[in-house]
Design a protein around this nucleic acid. Structure first.
Lengths: 229, 229
DNA sequence: ATTGCGGTTTCTGTATACACAAAAGTGATC
DNA sequence: GATCACTTTTGTGTATACAGAAACCGCAAT
């Protein structure tokens, strides 16, 4: 029956290892599995509902992602995020994003960025609308990142960026940005987009450098603030 | 992205998955397993002398390293190296090495670089001595890279650099550099080292940029030459 | 009270068996 | 001779069983 094969392809019974990977990754990124949390194979395998073999494969991928480390004797644990590691991550991020933006401004196809420009112009309004607006703003940023990735056309660079963004997702969680910072960030993004549209790699690179500098300062300040309470 | 440093005690027999990983990785890097070569689980497991489970783990790590890709229908194959991918890799490498050198020049502890400087001054002599000298020269470069990694003190950045160097090892194999290029490269390295010792991040960064530009040109020329024969 | 030791338990590392899907081979029919 | 259905083979995905090692716990000795 053709419906059967179709269902097998589309209805997508994901492989168990893939399911385990996505679930664990998601739980780590949204903080459900906190830094330092122990991952025991049998325990996690039962919880997720797969056997140990696919679970091990999932954990191996998480280790490669840098989200999990094997610990000496027993099991694995979720990597923790220190203030130092945030600064270090941003040193890598600076290098990658500046290069990516530079390439995007060089090879740009302006159309998608024109659309994004329009969206970012109205971003400050969005940020007046509370949590829903903030969420929409983050979606916008995702779209910008996707557009940049597409414009860069470099699997190596995009891959490295993806890895960095994985860690950033965790950092954002523990240092929620304030509205003022988000408005400033929107303006910075707008400048970057304009530089890409204008085909000015140097301007785009400098604007990105500044943006990331401010972003790091804001993150560190937010964490400082949190830890004082 | 750095791979698990493995919890192996000295003297302890290596885990089967680790053995499989190292052997396959080595064979891919030195060209024994050529780009495009198929990796069948059962076949490779028998050859290496481990069962399928650890072999799968090894392959998963190779995929994370970007040395192997899962292919359409069946099995896995060694990733191939196109001219395009070399240029792309160098775009990433530029970003990482420039940032690394910049940081090394900022945080430098001059001592190890002083020693390396002395060694690089005599590098041209080394290159007169045929293959043995060339090999020694490559060892010198490894030491320079190690010194930079240590000076950078950034696991994220160093991890990304390691990944890039993995791919570079394969590229070097298929584009052996000529002695003239190596002599020029030695001079370029000397300039970079001097900039680090002088604590001049900007000079070091620019010198690195130039060096990588020349390096890419040389690699592409060598490949062009080879393919014409 | 603390520390050293041995048994117990738990967990990982590895092998293997089974199930299911895809490709290749085979034969029959037109 | 070509094409299509069916069988066989091959290979992956998953579960599970087994072995060895590390942590835990209680007991005893100082």
């Amino acid at each position: 029956m053709y419906t059967e094969t179709a269902m097998l392809r589309l209805g997508a019974p994901l492989r168990a290892s893939e399911r385990a990977y996505r679930q664990l990754r998601g739980e780590i990124l949204n903080g459900l599995l906190a830094p330092g949390a122990a991952l025991l194979e049998v325990e996690q395998a039962e919880r997720i509902g797969v056997s140990r073999t696919p679970l091990r494969e999932a954990v191996a991928r998480l280790i490669a992602d840098g989200l999990v480390v094997g610990r000496r004797g027993r099991g694995f644990e979720v990597t923790d995020i220190s203030v130092d590691s945030i600064s270090e991550l941003y040193e890598l991020r600076q290098a990658l994003e500046v290069q990516a933006i530079r390439l995007a401004a060089t090879r740009r196809e302006p159309a998608p960025f024109q659309e994004l420009r329009d969206a970012f112009v109205t971003a400050p309004d969005l940020l007046e609308q509370g949590d829903i607006g903030v969420h929409r703003y983050y979606v916008l940023i995702d779209e910008l990142e996707d557009a940049i990735d597409a414009a860069v056309e470099n699997p190596f660079l995009v891959g490295a960026l993806r890895a960095v963004r994985t860690h950033l997702a965790r950092i954002r969680r523990l240092a929620r940005s304030n509205p003022r910072r988000l408005r400033a960030a929107a303006a910075e993004h707008l400048l970057i987009i304009d530089a890409i549209i204008a085909g000015d790699p140097s301007l785009a690179a400098h604007a990105t450098h500044i943006h990331l500098h401010q972003s790091l300062l804001s993150v560190l300040a937010a964490i400082e603030e949190d830890s004082e309470r």
